[in-house]
């Protein structure tokens, strides 16, 4: 699969989200790639409330198999989740398990009015009934391959392919 330019995808994603926002919309990114995207989208969309960050390590479904992630970042939701219209952001949607964990974690902060999902890339391979509301690029990627969002020193985001370890 050929991947278009990351910044173009990000711009397209922002334009897809823009008309769907209301005064009650807040953005939450999933650590790490989704959090970087949430920061960018927050600026591009001119949202006033700062973006939230979720590290879903305490909600993963594979804790029993692989244990606790070696680096857990503290989740920060800087707004009241109750009755808020939340756009949950992640870089790559694959099995859907991360999104499941993130939704569960959000509900431990309160009862949102709505959660919609925005992803840069949907690579297929779903194992749960989860679909993105906003998606900049769709393609089916071989299970042996991974896509990572990386951020360089100047804050520029780029999608990169690699083989699964």
């Amino acid at each position: 699969m050929e991947m278009p330019d990351t910044n173009l995808l990000l711009k397209n994603l922002a334009e897809e989200i823009r008309p769907a926002m209301n005064g009650n919309t807040c953005i939450v990114g999933i650590h790490t790639g989704g959090a970087w995207l949430a920061e960018k989208l927050h600026g591009m969309l001119g949202l006033k409330t700062p973006p939230g960050l979720l590290d879903i390590s305490f909600y993963r479904d594979d804790f029993g198999r692989i244990g606790l992630h070696p680096e857990v970042k503290r989740s920060e939701i800087p707004f009241d989740v109750d009755d808020t219209d939340i756009i949950l952001v992640d870089d790559v949607l694959h099995t859907g398990r991360t999104v499941r964990a993130a939704i569960n974690e959000l509900f431990d902060y309160g009862r949102p009015a709505r959660i919609r999902l925005a992803v840069l890339v949907d690579r297929g391979g779903r194992e749960l009934p989860i679909e993105p509301t906003f998606c900049a690029f769709r393609g089916v990627l071989d299970e042996e391959k991974m896509i990572d969002l990386v951020r360089n020193d100047s804050g520029l985001l780029e999608l990169k392919f690699r083989s699964r370890e």
């Binding site: 305490f58 909600y59 804790f63 606790l68 989740s75 569960n104 974690e105 509900f107 431990d108 902060y109 309160g110």
Partner: peptide, 11 residues
């Protein structure tokens, strides 16, 4: 976690 409304995780 302990500062949230629900002070519990399912770990």
């Amino acid at each position: 976690v302990t500062e949230r409304e629900v002070k519990k995780v399912p770990l």
